[in-house]
Amino acid sequence: MMRSYTTGEDVTRAFFDAWNAQDLDWLADLFVDDADFVNVVGFWWTTRRQIRKAHDYGFRKIFQDARVEIVALKSRALGKDVEVVHTVSTLVGQNDEHGITAGQRIAVITIVAHRQKDGGFRIVSCQNTDRVDGADTHLNTDAGFRPASYQVD
């Protein structure tokens, strides 16, 4: 059943609701067919089908007991048919590769929503970025990839 969302903020909030419900059909329906989704490690999915498949994997392997919550949201209209929505959210209950519950993560998720011919908004682009407190950037060194801070006390 295709639902209708009157604003970019509405479809963004629905994304979080569908994610928490782990409802793959609802989640996929929020996106246009050729939507883009970039996850926290840079995987880039370019279709609704790929986005659904990736979330199916995540819900089965990583996020079975997880919940996300919006803690801040800002929407900016770019005309009457396009909105950019930024959120800060928390994620709790993620399982590590051994099934042990990991600590809380904080993310900035950016969604670009576009009004469709039916008048409702759908997501055309979504990017999820982990926030690492105290880090200014990441470094890739011989010891591996790690957050780094250039701040001097």
Rank of each mutant, 00 (worst) to 15 (best):
4 S>F: 05
7 T>P: 10
8 G>H: 05
14 A>R: 12
15 F>H: 09
15 F>L: 07
18 A>W: 02
19 W>I: 00
20 N>S: 00
21 A>S: 12
21 A>L: 10
26 W>E: 15
26 W>L: 13
27 L>W: 15
28 A>Y: 11
29 D>W: 01
30 L>I: 03
31 F>S: 02
34 D>V: 12
34 D>C: 12
34 D>S: 10
37 F>D: 05
38 V>Q: 04
39 N>L: 05
40 V>L: 13
41 V>M: 13
45 W>A: 11
46 T>Y: 01
46 T>R: 13
51 I>A: 01
51 I>H: 00
52 R>C: 00
53 K>P: 03
55 H>F: 09
56 D>T: 08
61 K>Y: 13
62 I>V: 09
62 I>K: 07
62 I>R: 09
64 Q>L: 14
65 D>W: 14
67 R>H: 12
68 V>L: 10
68 V>I: 09
68 V>N: 07
71 V>A: 02
72 A>F: 13
74 K>G: 07
75 S>M: 14
75 S>T: 15
76 R>P: 07
78 L>P: 02
78 L>A: 11
79 G>F: 03
80 K>N: 11
81 D>F: 00
81 D>Y: 02
82 V>T: 12
83 E>W: 03
86 H>R: 06
87 T>K: 08
87 T>Q: 12
90 T>H: 12
90 T>P: 02
91 L>F: 12
91 L>R: 04
92 V>M: 10
94 Q>I: 00
98 H>V: 09
98 H>G: 07
99 G>W: 08
99 G>L: 01
99 G>F: 12
101 T>E: 12
103 G>C: 04
105 R>D: 11
105 R>V: 02
105 R>P: 06
106 I>M: 06
107 A>D: 07
107 A>P: 01
108 V>I: 15
109 I>T: 15
109 I>H: 08
111 I>R: 07
111 I>L: 11
112 V>C: 08
113 A>V: 01
117 K>L: 10
117 K>N: 12
118 D>L: 08
119 G>W: 01
120 G>M: 03
120 G>R: 00
120 G>D: 04
121 F>W: 06
122 R>P: 09
122 R>T: 03
123 I>F: 01
124 V>E: 13
132 V>P: 14
132 V>D: 10
133 D>P: 10
133 D>H: 09
133 D>W: 04
133 D>Y: 06
135 A>D: 01
136 D>T: 04
137 T>P: 00
140 N>M: 14
141 T>H: 03
142 D>T: 10
143 A>Q: 10
144 G>D: 07
145 F>D: 08
146 R>Y: 05
147 P>K: 00
147 P>E: 00
148 A>M: 06
151 Q>Y: 02
